[in-house]
Design a protein around this nucleic acid. Structure first.
Lengths: 200, 200
DNA sequence: GAAACGAACGAACGGTCGTGCTATTTATTG
DNA sequence: CAATAAATAGCACGACCGTTCGTTCGTTTC
């Protein structure tokens, strides 16, 4: 039987493991995460690490969930402190752009999307749920901006969210492949233009 | 010493190997491409396959180059038959959108971007060169549309290319994670709106 | 103090990985 | 047809993979 953590000590090392695993998976992807490397990084034996999760897949799921939580706390939570409307929508994208800047070594979530987008299994489902939730949060912010009269009433929230995602994805790619500063400037210009074209 | 192909027979099987490797790498990525699987898929021994390339990395480079050629022939070449200007720019994006639709099991290039964007080495360099070239081709089409008077004279070609890429990336992602048809419609709407906002 | 439990270890499993070597078969050429 | 070169097979290697197993060491509970 696997331990799967009961005591506080066990939970603490489990958190430590996930933290190290998150750092590794940001660089090498969830598929590039090996238990051997992870054990070495955390200073434990392979079996010791393994016992905290029933399988490698469960480890990957735990790391992905942790990554989603990190992203939410870094981007969504601060935005929720802003008043509903354009201010919050702007905070979301700014937080997202900053996230891309601050995670230039790799973003776990975006990596996971590429790894599992056309695969079946629990990882794929978890990725879909994660992106879906984030897309919904963005669309909700758009709707609030419409309700506040800060965006045109006929604004299609799903459509606008789609386009915002596009800008962020292009920023993500260009930040890594080309010049990060120029990419940031282009993303902000694109976003401003997008908002302006929907202004009432 | 590796054979590295001289006769026509050798070149033919090398092409066959790359073709199969391309199909595998579309699904599993260039990192997920293993010589053992590839040998089985092509009906050869591991060492027989291996001899056609000096190393796994050279194999990956060859497959990536082949993927770039395929993309170019499927998207760029048809567009070049259109007259310079908006028609060609539209053909480029249409071809790209169709490419996303027709390669729903996975796009080798986009996968390679995720795998090698924040890594050093020849694969990274090859990916950067590939995307850079494609971006330049797109920007060139934009410039021609400006010169033809079909886009506003103050259009920033690099900026517009950035935003077109964003739409395509969002389409790519949504096609795999959510509803492909809806994603296509959203991408086309976004692109039309983008062009309209730059119309003279 | 005994018994139970959670945490972690170390060794080993069967596989697969990329990569060398050495034959052997096959194709091309004189 | 023979000679030569190229293409492929066979085999073995060291390394690493995820996983299982039995065991040990503290801590907690009775």
């Amino acid at each position: 039987m696997s331990n799967l953590t009961a005591t506080s000590k066990g939970a603490a090392t489990r958190e430590l493991i996930i933290e190290r695993a998150y750092a590794i998976a940001c660089r090498d992807g969830l598929e590039g995460l090996s238990i051997g490397d992870l054990a070495q990084a955390v200073g434990m034996s392979k079996s010791g690490v393994f016992a905290h999760f029933g399988s490698r897949e469960d480890l990957q799921l735990a790391v992905l969930e942790s990554g989603g939580r990190r992203f939410g706390e870094a981007v969504l939570v601060p935005a929720l402190r802003k008043p509903r409307g354009l201010a919050r929508l702007r905070a979301i994208t700014k937080g997202w752009f900053d996230w891309v800047r601050d995670n230039r070594q790799g973003c776990l979530i975006m990596g996971a999307v590429s790894e599992y987008d056309s695969r079946v299994g629990s990882l794929h489902d978890a990725v879909v749920a994660l992106i879906q939730r984030w897309r919904n949060d963005t669309a909700r912010a758009v709707v609030m901006a419409v309700e506040a009269g800060e965006l045109r009433a006929d604004t299609d929230a799903k459509q606008l969210s789609f386009e915002i995602f596009g800008i962020a994805l292009a920023l993500h790619q260009d930040t890594r492949l080309f010049d990060a500063k120029q990419a940031r400037a282009q993303a902000e210009r694109a976003f401003d233009r997008l908002l302006k074209s929907h202004s009432p």
